[in-house]
Write a protein that binds this DNA or RNA. Structure first.
Length: 612
DNA sequence: ATAGGGTTAG
C-alpha cells in the first residue's frame, strides 16, 4: 500500500487527522520534497520528513502501530527524530523487543546517531525486558556519545538499573553522578528501593529529599506511601497519610490509591474499608487495590467486593482477574474459578502471562491438575512463575517425578532458577521419596546458582531426609546450619521423629518448637503422643492440661467443600444438617478402599487426641 | 518534530 493511499484510507478512523488540513496531506510527496506547491504556504512544512514523523506519532497514539511502521519504512530519508518516534511508538505499545530491534538496526546500520531522546526511550524498553545486558550496552553507548549528563538519560539509566539488577548499587552510582537532580531523579530512586522490597531504604531517600528541600508532588507522595506499605509499619503509614492531607494531595487518585494499599498491606482491613468509603473519587485501580488487599486475608470478602464493583459499572481488567483467581484458589472453589476463567477468555485476556500463571495455580489448588497442565502446555511464552506454579501443582498432587522433570526442562529452556522454584522442586522430591535427587538439587542450588539456603529451604531438606527415615542426617543438617533453625525446621524434624518413632530426638525437637512458638498445637499433640508411647503418663497428663488451657483460645479448624455451586463448611463433630448420612456413606466406602489397599491407620493420633 | 517517575502474580 502506498503512503498516500494509506493516509487517505486510515485518516477517517483517526481523530488526530481531522485537524490536519488536506492541503498538507497532499503535499506529502517524497519525489519533490523541497518544492511542494500549496495555496497556503504557511501550512506547508519545509521538510516533509517532519510531517511524516508527526504522522508516525499520531498513528501510534491512535493505536495503528503497523500503519506507523509502514509509513516509517516508506520514508526515503529518516533522521534521528523519525527513528526515535518509531522506537517510542513500540515501547508505548509494550512491543519492547520490536523497539530494541529497531534501535539495534539504527545503531548498527543507519547513518544516524542516537541522541538523548533515543537513548532514554530505548532504556525504557531494556527496563521492561529486564535486560541488564542490553541496558548496560546502551549505557556504554551513552557514555561514548557524551549523553550522560542529560537528566532524561540519567534518570532512565537509574530506572533501568533499579529494575534490571536486584541491587541498588548501580542506580546509586548514577544518582550520585547527577549534578542537578530533579524530582524525577528522586522518585525514581525511591521506586527502585520499594521495587526490591526495601521500604526503609525508600523512606531514607524520601527523608533526604525533604532535607534537600525538593518540591514534593503527588508522585513523590504516592511512592513514599508505597515505601511505608513495604515496611508494614502502620505508624509510618499514618504519618504519611497526615502529610498527604497537609500538602493538599488528599484527593489525588493515585495518591489515595496508594494510601488504601498501605492500609491493606499493614493488615488494617477495617481502616482500609473505611478509607475506601471516604474516598470521593474511585477508579478501577481503587477497586483492584481493595480486592487484592482482601484476597490476602479474607478471600470470600474479596469476591463480594468484586461483584459490588461490577454492579457499580466497573469492568475488570487483568489485575482484577489476577486477584479474583487467587481468591478462588485460596477458597478452592472450582466452579467459581471456572466462571472467572470464562470471563477472562471472553475479555480476550487469556494470553496474559500473569493470568495464565494464576489459572495454573488455581486449578491445581482446586484439585484439577489436568486443567493446570492443559493451560501450561498451551502457553507459548512461559516465565519462572509459570514453571514454579506448575511444579508446585504437580508436587502437591504427588507427582514428584513430573515436577522434577519440569525443573530440568525449565533450566534447559534457559530460565535461571531462584529460591522459590527450589522450594517447589525440593518439596516435590520430598513427597515423592526422591531423596537423592532432592539432595542433588540442594547442592546445585548452593554450588551452581549461588543461592543461600534460608529457613524454608532447610525445612524442605530436613523434611526430605526425615520422611525417608534419615532422621539423624536431618538433625546433623540442622546442627550445621549457619543460623538458628526456626520452628518450621524443628517442626519438620519433629514430624519425622513421630513417623519413625524416635522418642528422644522427638522430645528435643518438640521442646525447640515450643520454645519458639508456645501455642503450636501440633507440637503438643506429638509430644504428648511420645510421652504416652513411653508410658510416662505424668508428663502426658501435664501436656494435656496445658493443651486444654490453650484450647479455648485456639480457633477451631474448619474444612469446606464445594458441591454444585454451593460451599459447605464444617468443623470437628459437625452434624452438617441433612447431609451427615451421605458423608458417612462416603467415609465408609473410603475406609473400605483403604483397607483393601493395605493401609493401616495410625491410631496413635486418635487415641491420644485431646478431645477424644 | 522525538524522551521521564505512582497500583499487580509462584
Amino acid at each position: 500500500m502506498s503512503t498516500r493511499k494509506l493516509i487517505s484510507s486510515t485518516s477517517k478512523k483517526s481523530i488526530h487527522f481531522h485537524k490536519i488540513p488536506p492541503t498538507i496531506l497532499n503535499s506529502l510527496n517524497w519525489a519533490d520534497n523541497n518544492q511542494t506547491q500549496s495555496s497556503n504556504p504557511s501550512l506547508t512544512p519545509k521538510n516533509p520528513s517532519i510531517l511524516a514523523t508527526n504522522l508516525i506519532k499520531s498513528y501510534c497514539e491512535s493505536g495503528q502501530i503497523n500503519e506507523a511502521r509502514t509509513l516509517f519504512d516508506e520514508m526515503p530519508e529518516r533522521d534521528v527524530v523519525a527513528w526515535t518516534a518509531m522506537i517510542a511508538g513500540y515501547t508505548s505499545f509494550h512491543y519492547h523487543t520490536h523497539a530494541w530491534r529497531l534501535f539495534a538496526e539504527m545503531a548498527g546500520t543507519a547513518a544516524v546517531d542516537p541522541n538523548e531522546y533515543t537513548v532514554s526511550t530505548v532504556l525504557k524498553a531494556c527496563r521492561s525486558m529486564k535486560s541488564l545486558l542490553y541496558g548496560t550496552l546502551v549505557h556504554g553507548l551513552a557514555v561514548k556519545r557524551g549523553l550522560e549528563g542529560s537528566l532524561y538519560v540519567d534518570n532512565a539509566l537509574m530506572d533501568m538499573y533499579a529494575t534490571c539488577c536486584d541491587c541498588m548499587e548501580k542506580a546509586w552510582m548514577v544518582f550520585k553522578g547527577i549534578k542537578v537532580k530533579n524530582d524525577v531523579s528522586w522518585t525514581t530512586l525511591i521506586t527502585g528501593y520499594t521495587h526490591i522490597g526495601d521500604g526503609y531504604g525508600g523512606l531514607r531517600v524520601f527523608r533526604h529529599m525533604i532535607l534537600e528541600e525538593v518540591k514534593l508532588n503527588p508522585y513523590s507522595f504516592s511512592i513514599a506511601v508505597r515505601a511505608c506499605a513495604s515496611t508494614g509499619w502502620l505508624v509510618f503509614g499514618k504519618l504519611m497519610h497526615a502529610a498527604v492531607t497537609k500538602h493538599g494531595f488528599g484527593s489525588n487518585i493515585p495518591v489515595t490509591n496508594s494510601i488504601l494499599d498501605m492500609y491493606c498491606r499493614c493488615g488494617c482491613l477495617s481502616e482500609a474499608n473505611q478509607y475506601f468509603h471516604e474516598m470521593s473519587e474511585k477508579d478501577l485501580i481503587t477497586w483492584n487495590t481493595l480486592i487484592a488487599g482482601y484476597e490476602r486475608s479474607d478471600s470470600s470478602e474479596s469476591l463480594n467486593i468484586f461483584s459490588r464493583m461490577e454492579s457499580e459499572g466497573f469492568s475488570p481488567n487483568s489485575f482484577t482477574f489476577s486477584s479474583i483467581i487467587a481468591a478462588c484458589a485460596n477458597l478452592a472453589v472450582l466452579r467459581c474459578g471456572q466462571q472467572v476463567h470464562g470471563g477472562i477468555v471472553h475479555k480476550g485476556l487469556d494470553r496474559d502471562l500473569a493470568l495464565a500463571n494464576s489459572l495454573i495455580d488455581m486449578y491445581a489448588k482446586c484439585g484439577n491438575i489436568s486443567d493446570s497442565q492443559k493451560i501450561f502446555s498451551d502457553m507459548w511464552h512461559r516465565d519462572l512463575v509459570t514453571w514454579t506454579s506448575m511444579m508446585i501443582g504437580f508436587g502437591s498432587h504427588g507427582y514428584g517425578k513430573e515436577a522434577v522433570h519440569l525443573f530440568d526442562e525449565m533450566v534447559w529452556s534457559g530460565i535461571r532458577p531462584d529460591r522459590i522454584v527450589f522450594i517447589a522442586v525440593l518439596s516435590a522430591c520430598s513427597h515423592a521419596g526422591l531423596v537423592d535427587e532432592g539432595l542433588r538439587y540442594f547442592e546445585t542450588m548452593v554450588g551452581k546458582y549461588n543461592i543461600k539456603p534460608n529457613q524454608e529451604i532447610y525445612g524442605c531438606v530436613v523434611d526430605l531426609l526425615g520422611r525417608a527415615g534419615r532422621v539423624n542426617e536431618a538433625y546433623r543438617l540442622i546442627q550445621s546450619m549457619p543460623f538458628k533453625a526456626d520452628e518450621t525446621v524443628w517442626g519438620a524434624l519433629l514430624a519425622a521423629c513421630k513417623a519413625h518413632r524416635l522418642v528422644d530426638l522427638g522430645k528435643l525437637a518438640a521442646r525447640r518448637v515450643l520454645d519458639l512458638r508456645p501455642n503450636m498445637m501440633g507440637a503438643y499433640v506429638m509430644l504428648s503422643n511420645i510421652y504416652a508411647a513411653e508410658g510416662k503418663y505424668k508428663e502426658f497428663a501435664k501436656i494435656r492440661r496445658t493443651m486444654r488451657r490453650m484450647g479455648n483460645k485456639k480457633e477451631t479448624g474448619k474444612s469446606w467443600i464445594e458441591v454444585k455451586n454451593q460451599v459447605y463448611s464444617f468443623v470437628v463433630g459437625d452434624k452438617m444438617g441433612s447431609h451427615t448420612e451421605h458423608v458417612y456413606v462416603v467415609l465408609d466406602l473410603l475406609n473400605g478402599n483403604m483397607k483393601e489397599a493395605g493401609y493401616v491407620p495410625d491410631l496413635d493420633c486418635l487415641v491420644h487426641d485431646p478431645e477424644g
